[in-house]
């Protein structure tokens, strides 16, 4: 496989490629950062990557939005993934809100939002 071929295939699958890239970025952020808010941000990036991936499944290059008109015959985008992901986004938003509210409570108890710091105050255990 030549370089051009790889580039071309990447281009053809660019949505998936970037979705995976985003997923890794999000996952990495979530695991390596001690700041709880950054963890939540990482979580969101990861969620978005999955949403992108999911929506990309239904995308047809050059397709239109699936509004049927008599006499017009076009390639349509599959609307189902987008519809599903709307639900997914709602879920992600509520989880984020909940996580942030928990962080506020943690800040009230510990005076910090740094996982290491909380661990130190608590003495042992991990977050």
């Amino acid at each position: 496989m030549s370089i051009t071929e790889i580039v071309l295939r990447l281009h053809a699958n660019s949505y998936y490629f970037f979705a995976i890239l985003l997923f890794i970025i999000g996952f990495h952020t979530m695991l390596t950062h001690n700041n709880l808010i950054k963890k939540v941000i990482g979580m969101n990036i990861m969620d978005m990557a999955i949403f992108l991936f999911f929506v990309a499944i239904g995308y047809v290059r050059g397709g239109r939005s699936p509004i049927l008109e008599p006499g017009v015959n076009h390639a349509f985008i599959n609307p189902l993934p987008s519809a599903l992901i709307l639900t997914g986004i709602v879920v992600a938003v509520s989880v984020t809100a909940y996580a942030l509210s928990l962080i506020i409570k943690l800040y009230k108890h510990y005076g910090t939002i740094d996982a290491e710091e909380i661990m130190r105050i608590r003495g042992g255990g991990s977050l």
Binding site: M43, A99, L102, L106, H109, I118, L127
Partner: peptide
């Protein structure tokens, strides 16, 4: 509880 819930949530 808050801490455990956060860990569980993540």
């Amino acid at each position: 509880c808050i801490e455990a819930a956060f860990k569980y949530l993540v």
